[in-house]
Amino acid sequence: MSFHWRWDFTFEIMPRLLWATLNTLMAAGLGYAIAMVLGLGLALAQRSRFRLLTLAVRELVEFIRSTPLVLQIFFVFYVGPQFGIRLSPWVSGMAAIGLHYSAYLSEVYRGGLASVPRGQWEACIALNMTARQTYLRVILPQALPPALAGMGNYLVGILKDTPMLSVIGVAELMQTANAIGSESYRYLEPYTLVGVIFLAISLPVAGLVRLFEIRVRRKLGMR
C-alpha cells in the first residue's frame, strides 16, 4: 500500500490530463449548446396549439428526465447500431447528453415563459405582431433572465456529468485518469487531479454565470 503522494508522477501525468480537460470542456460545451437549442424547441412545442404535439413532447421530456443518463448513453451507442444507426463515441455521447439536458433545460425555459405576464402577449396582439416577432422581440427577452440561474446550474451539471461519457470510450478526463491508473497502478494522483481540475472549472463557471445574470438583467432594464 502506498499512501504517499508522488510529485514527480503528478507532473508526469499532468500534460495528459490537461489535454483531456480540453475534451471535457468541449464535450460539456457542445452538449450544452445542443441542449440549449433543443430545449428551447421542446419548451415551445409544449405551448403549441396542436394538442397531440404538446402531449407527445410533454411525455418525451418526462421520459428523458426519469431515466438515467448513463443508460441513455449506452442506448444510443450500443442499441443504435442494431437499428442501423452507427455513431462514433463522440457523436453518440453528444447526442445523448445533449438530449438529456435539453429535457431539463426545457423545464427551465418553460418556467421562464410562464413568468411572462399574459398582458405582454396581449400587447403583442394589439400591436399586430406575428408569433415569431412576439417570441423573439418580447417574450424570450423577458423569459430568459429568470431562467438564467437554472440554466447556469445545468451548465455546471453537464460539466460534472461528462465523466459518464467514459463508459463508451470518449477520451475525456475520467477516461484518461482510468487509463493512467491501469497503466501505472497508481490511482491516487490521477483521480485527485481530476477532482481538482473539476473544482477549478466549476467554481469560476458558477461565478461567471451569476455575473452574466446580473448584467443581462441590468441590460434589459429589469430590477
Binding site: A123, N128, M129, Q133, R137, V138, P141, G221
Partner: peptide, 20 residues
Amino acid sequence: FNLFPHMTALQNCMEGPVQV
C-alpha cells in the same frame, strides 16, 4: 399598461412601426 419592460419608452413606441 402592458408596456414592454425591457424596452425604453421610445423603443416601446418604435417596436410596432419597425417590426410590423
